[in-house]
């Protein structure tokens, strides 16, 4: 993989824990790769599978979803529902050979600024190894 490949990564984070994590990271002056684009949603449970698919079709190389730790969801069960949805999306992508590991789901609590920055950096490395998303250059999608 060429060194100058800068993956485009969409980081879905919920308003409560995920974004809180990024605030804590900024308070501690922790850096994450600038090609990771934060995208705030009210709750991970509100993310439709179509949003993720749309992101892929429109040229994202990878997607991370961060919600609250189990039991911490502001709406009680949004993160559990999101986890099910991610599980089904992964198995759909897997059975079609579309690379399910371009989607990550990780819990990041409000105080876990380091975990937030680490996740972004780790995922960035991971996608760099995978290479660009083959969907994005196709005219026919």
């Amino acid at each position: 993989m060429s060194e100058d490949f800068k993956p485009k990564i969409i980081y879905f984070m919920c308003s409560w824990c995920g974004t809180g994590g990024s605030e804590t990271a900024s308070a501690h002056h922790l850096y994450y790769p600038e090609n990771v684009i934060p995208f705030r949603v009210n709750c991970t449970g509100a993310i439709s599978p179509l949003h993720l698919l749309r992101a892929f079709v429109e040229g994202a190389d990878g997607i991370v979803i961060s919600g609250c730790h189990p039991g911490d969801c502001h709406y009680n069960d949004g993160n559990f529902r999101a986890r099910r949805r991610v599980a089904s999306i992964k198995s759909i992508l897997d059975s079609l050979g579309l690379g399910a590991d371009r989607v990550w789901f990780r819990y990041v609590a409000h105080g876990e600024g380091k975990r937030f920055a680490d996740t972004a950096a780790e995922f960035n490395e991971h996608i760099k190894n995978l290479g660009p998303n083959p969907l994005k250059e196709r005219k026919e999608t």
Partner: peptide, 24 residues
């Protein structure tokens, strides 16, 4: 992004999206 576009667009997107909704 692509320099061109198939029309009507988004056919793969449509079928994948329908899979996400109905496959279960």
């Amino acid at each position: 992004l692509r320099g061109g576009l198939r029309l009507p667009p988004d056919t793969v997107f449509y079928h994948l999206g329908r899979l996400m909704h109905t496959s279960i």
